[in-house]
């Protein structure tokens, strides 16, 4: 009953796993930016971006199915863009009842937004599943995130699993006592208000216990010489191959972006 299932990192020794985390982080952000800046309707560019991320997924050895499943996560939000189908003026493709109609321009914008979010999520999944969290932390520090922030996030990650375990145990203890009476006349479950107060009580206990835990952690840190200053070992330099990958992929993304802007801007 441990929350390890939460960690999205998948073991591996593929080239994608071995690429320096700093490079991966930069490239994933550059990739998502490129897809965001690609104009609606630039299908060839979207196709190329998709094949780029698919290639990286293949290289990662984790199997395309794995990525497709994870990438479904952003799907519900597509609902928010659905109205575009009928609200953008343009060439009518399909007339609907109530005087609504799907336009070509609306469809183009809708599909472009869905595509952008789909390929962006895949890139983010790729980063999280091939990079361990400590590597991501190092990368964040290398890219200029304040040390204090990185230290907080690092501590958060360490205790995340402890806390999630705690929540799961509480939920389990609640389930264990959520029984029905032997007399069929009583409706089980209590009122919504009461149920919400029970959940709230759990949140409150969790908060109090975390606060006490943070005190203990602070004392343990002091006992080992912590003085408020965050120190860390210098990071190893980048290998030539890391620089090469960075350079080539950035160049590729930049040329795709320029091309898309020229031809579809």
């Amino acid at each position: 009953m441990h929350a390890n299932f939460l960690d999205p990192y998948q073991e591996g020794t593929s080239p994608v796993h071995r690429l320096d985390a700093r490079i991966k982080l930069i490239l994933v952000i550059a990739f998502i930016l490129t897809s965001a800046l690609t104009p609606a309707g630039a299908w060839p560019i979207f196709t190329l971006l998709l094949s780029l991320v698919l290639s990286a997924e293949l290289l990662s050895d984790l199997g395309i199915v794995f990525f497709m499943k994870r990438a479904l996560l952003a799907l519900p939000f597509v609902l928010a863009a659905l109205p575009l189908l009928v609200t953008v003026d343009g060439v009518v493709l399909l007339a609907l009842p109530l005087g609504l109609s799907i336009t070509q321009q609306g469809l183009e914008r809708f599909i472009s937004i869905s595509l952008r979010s789909w390929i962006s999520v895949q890139a983010a999944v790729l980063l999280a599943s091939t990079t361990t969290f400590p590597e991501i932390l190092h990368a964040m520090r290398a890219l200029g995130l304040p040390r204090l922030m990185v230290a907080i996030i690092g501590l958060m990650w360490r205790y995340l699993f402890v806390m999630v375990d705690e929540v799961l145990r509480m939920l389990r203890a609640r389930t264990a006592r959520s029984g029905e009476s032997e007399f069929s006349g009583h409706r089980a479950g209590g009122t919504i208000f009461w149920r919400s107060q029970v959940a709230g009580g759990m949140a409150g206990s969790l908060f109090l216990r975390s606060l006490e835990r943070s005190d203990r952690i602070y004392h343990a840190m002091l006992a080992r010489g912590y003085d408020g200053e965050i120190r860390s070992l210098p990071q190893p330099g980048l290998r030539p191959v890391d620089w090469l990958v960075l350079f080539i992929v950035l160049l590729l993304l930049l040329s795709l972006l320029v091309l898309s802007r020229i031809l579809w801007g």
């Binding site: 705690e166 145990r169 959520s178 029905e180 009476s181 089980a188 009580g201 409150g204």
Partner: peptide, 22 residues
């Protein structure tokens, strides 16, 4: 399950998990 949960009184190892009310 509903009936069974009332029939089986399960006390967990950590009482903190079981006591979540004010």
């Amino acid at each position: 399950l509903g009936r069974v949960r009332a029939l089986v009184g399960l006390v967990f190892q950590s009482p903190d998990d079981q006591l979540f009310s004010p």
